[in-house]
Amino acid sequence: MTADTYLAPKRLDEALEALRGGEATILAGGTDLMVQSQSGKTPIGPKLVNIRRIAGLAGVVRADGEIHIGALTTIAELLEHELVRTHLPSLAEACDHFASSQIRNAGTLGGNVCNASPAGDTLVPLLALGASVELAAKPDAAVTTRAMPLGEFIVGPGKTQRKPAELLTAIRIPVPAAGGVQRFFKFGTRPALDIAAISLGLVTVKEGGVLRHVRLALGAVAPVPMRGVRAESMLEGRRLDPALIEAAAAAARDEVRPISDVRASDWYRRELVRNMVKRMLTDVSQS
C-alpha cells in the first residue's frame, strides 16, 4: 500500500497538475482511505496527493443565494458552524450522528461525498437540500471547473462522475427558504458509532399547511442515496392528514431498493422506511 510519490501541494493549481496523469490517490481526512487501503479495497496509486494543505479549500460562506462549503471542511467544523446550524439544520443533525468525535475531527465533507457510500451520513441531507458539487481540473495551462447536482454525481456504491484528473473543491447548497422545514433521521442499531441501516432527509416548505417543494432523500436503501420521488409527488401541494401520511410512507417503502446484509435485511429496511417516514411526516404535520 505504499506510493512511489507523495505530494502535499499548498495551492489548488499544483494539486490539479499532480492529478493530471490520472494515477493519483487523493488523501484528505484519510478516515475512509486508510481503512480501505489497509483492507485492499482501495489500493493507493503510484502517486499519493495530500490535499489537506491547499489554502482556501475549507470553510463555509454564503454568497449569491448559496451556501458554499469547501471540500476540506471537516464534519466537526460543519457541526459547529453558524451558517450550517441556522440554514442547514438537517445537515448539522447528520454531522452530529456522524461516527465519533475523532473521525468528525479528521473526516471532510468532500471526502464523505467522494466516498459515495449508500449509507454516507451527509449525503442524505445534501440530496434533500438540492446540493451540487464543484469539480476542478487543469488539463492544460488553465484551471477549468464544472458543477453538477449531487444526485447525478454519485452513480454507484463508491462510484462518482469525478474524473481521475479532477478534484472536488466545493459543495454548493441553495439557501433554503426561511420558515422551511428540515428533518434528518438516522437509524443505526445503537445510538453512537454506527453505520446507518437507513437514513432519511426531508426538506420542504409549509405554506398555510400545504407542502411545497418536497424533497425526500433516503440512504442505505439503494446502491446510491436516492430521492423518494413517488412519495414526494404524493405530498407535493397537499395538506398532511393521517391517510396521506400513511400512503406516502407506504409509497416510500415500496420505492426503495434495499439489500440484505449483516446490518439489516431488506424487509426490515423497508419497514423502517415506512415507519420512520410516517413518524417524520406526523411530526411535520404537528409542527
Binding site: 442499531t189 445503537r190 453512537a192 458509532l193 449483516v262 446490518r263
Partner: peptide, 25 residues
C-alpha cells in the same frame, strides 16, 4: 447487540464496525 454472524462456516462480521459491543450511552 452482540452476534458473530456465521454464514456457511465463515464469520461475516470480523470487526467492531459490525460486531456491536455496547457503547456508553
Amino acid at each position: 447487540t452482540e452476534e458473530l454472524i456465521v454464514e456457511r462456516g465463515v464469520t461475516r462480521n470480523p470487526a467492531f464496525r459490525d460486531y456491536k459491543l455496547v457503547t456508553a450511552p
